[in-house]
Amino acid sequence: MDNLIIEGTRQTPEINFDVESGILKLEGRSIPENTFEFFTPVLNWLDAYVNSSPDKIVAKINLEYFNTSSSKYILEILKKLKVFKVEGTEVLVEWYYEEDDEEMMETGEDYEDVSGLPFEIISFEEE
């Protein structure tokens, strides 16, 4: 199975999902008008990856902005990760936010609560 690599744009995030290491990176901004188009291949990739039964997955989510239609798909991704967990994979979500971005921190807590997955919420300094 191939890694999933999608370059970031001004509207869509950079995706780097690595089969071997189980590190799934989602970075940048996600504000496209048509979120369905962007996220469908990402969700499909995760569906296929479940069959590889990785030992461990670390999802590193570091988003500067995302719109509310993307927020549904981010939850969909987390729900897919839950499937891995049920299948015996160790799953961790690392949620990054810029230290003064309280809303992004709270959003991380919201996802932790709604998904029921183990989260680490990590702040970093503004560049």
Partner: peptide, 22 residues
């Protein structure tokens, strides 16, 4: 915040993607 979590979790994605969260 509670309302947001509720809608995020329960609402299906609408064809316009808006999902009422806006």
């Amino acid at each position: 915040r509670r309302y947001y979590r509720e809608i995020l979790d329960n609402n299906i994605i609408s064809d316009k993607g808006g999902a009422d969260l806006g």
